[in-house]
């Protein structure tokens, strides 16, 4: 019930982008900090553990958003505007989150 109410509320429109933004900040902050503190060797092995970790995390975030999008799409409601739009926004955010992780997979960290 609460879940259904959420997908009918306009706040659900922002769920996907907010997750994307948080993912972005976490990605950037973790990486900067790791390189700054020398946890990662400059231009070291590739793909390093961190690459796989980041790519995996990206996949998880994207999967989570896709699930959310499906849940929103299936929400019954008198007017489908908000749940449907939320679903589309979440789906787009899933793709965007995945794309963010791509460089993490193909590049060596800390260059």
């Amino acid at each position: 019930m609460i879940r259904r109410r959420f997908w009918q509320h306009p706040a659900s429109l922002l769920l996907g982008p907010v997750v994307w933004a948080v993912w972005f900040v976490v990605l950037y902050a973790v990486l900067s900090l790791a390189c700054q503190q020398g946890w990662l060797v400059n231009g070291g092995d590739h793909p390093a553990v961190i690459n796989l970790l980041l790519a995996g995390a990206g996949l998880l975030v994207a999967l989570g958003l896709v699930t959310a999008a499906l849940a929103a799409w299936r929400t019954p409601s008198q007017s489908d505007f908000i749940p449907r739009t939320s679903a589309m926004v979440s789906a787009c955010s899933a793709v965007a989150s995945l794309l963010l992780a791509v460089p993490g997979l193909i590049m060596a960290p800390c260059l």
């Binding site: 972005f24 990486l31 965007a96 993490g104 590049m107 960290p109 260059l111």
Partner: peptide, 24 residues
């Protein structure tokens, strides 16, 4: 909505030449 959010995640493209780590 997407534009509003994504546009807050691009500012560093004005700073590509300041020597920030490549992956960032």
């Amino acid at each position: 909505i997407m534009m509003g959010f994504v546009s807050f995640g691009l500012w560093v493209h004005h700073m590509f030449t300041v020597g920030i780590p490549q992956m960032a």
